[in-house]
Simulated scan of single mutants.
Amino acid sequence: MSELVLGLLATLAYGAVGTILMALGFVLVDLATPGKLRELIWVQGNRNASVLLASGLLGVGVIVTTAIITSDSDLVTGLMSTVVFGLAGLALMSIAFVLLDLATPGKLGEILARPEPHPAVWVSAAVHVAVSAIIAAAIT
C-alpha cells in the first residue's frame, strides 16, 4: 500500500511541476503576442494565437514527459531534472521565437495576433515542437 501512496504523491508532484511549467509557457507566449492571450483565444477565437500556444504547451509536455520517463527512482532528483529541463526548454523555445522573428519580415508577434489565419503560425509552431524534440532527445 505504501508503494501506491508514494506513486500517487510522485504523480501529483510531477503533475504540479508540469502544470507550473505550462503556466509559465502561457505567460511567455502572452508576452510574445500583442494584447492579452486570454482575450485573443477565448474571446476572439484567434486561431493563430491558439496554434502558437498549443505548440508551446505540447513542447513543454514533451520535455516534461521525457524528463519523467528518464528520471531514476529518486523523486527529488527526478523533479529537479524536470524543472531544469523544462525551464531550459522554455528558454530555448523563446530564443528560437526571437531568432525567427529577426529572420522574417514584420513583427512575428503582431502577425500571429491577427484575426485572419497566417502561415507564419505553422512555422512558429514547428519551431516549438522541433526545439522540444531536440531537448527531449538530449535528455535521453
Rank of each mutant, 00 (worst) to 15 (best):
F97R: 07
V131K: 03
Q44L: 11
L9S: 08
L24M: 12
L87Q: 07
V62L: 14
G35H: 01
V98P: 12
E39V: 02
L57E: 14
G45I: 09
V17Y: 00
S50P: 06
S132H: 00
V29P: 03
V43A: 02
S132W: 01
V129E: 03
R114V: 05
A125I: 08
A23P: 07
S71A: 15
S2E: 15
G45L: 09
V43Q: 11
G86M: 06
I41D: 01
V17P: 01
G89C: 03
A32W: 10
L31H: 07
I41A: 01
T11G: 15
S124N: 14
L87V: 13
K107E: 14
L87A: 09
I41G: 00
V129N: 04
L90R: 01
G15S: 09
I139R: 01
L12K: 01
G61K: 05
S132A: 14
I41C: 02
G106L: 12
G59V: 04
P117M: 05
L21F: 07
E116D: 11
A130R: 01
W42C: 00
I135T: 05
A136R: 04
A136S: 11
E116W: 00
R38T: 12
S55M: 11
D101N: 11
L92S: 02
A136H: 01
M93G: 03
G89K: 03
L37T: 00
I111K: 10
I134N: 02
M1P: 00
L6C: 07
A120R: 11
T19C: 11
H118T: 07
S73Q: 09
V62E: 04
T19R: 05
S124K: 10
R114L: 10
D101S: 14
P105W: 11
D74H: 10
L6D: 12
T33K: 03
S50R: 13
M22H: 08
L87D: 02
P115V: 03
V64C: 14
A113M: 07
L58M: 10
A67R: 04
L12H: 02
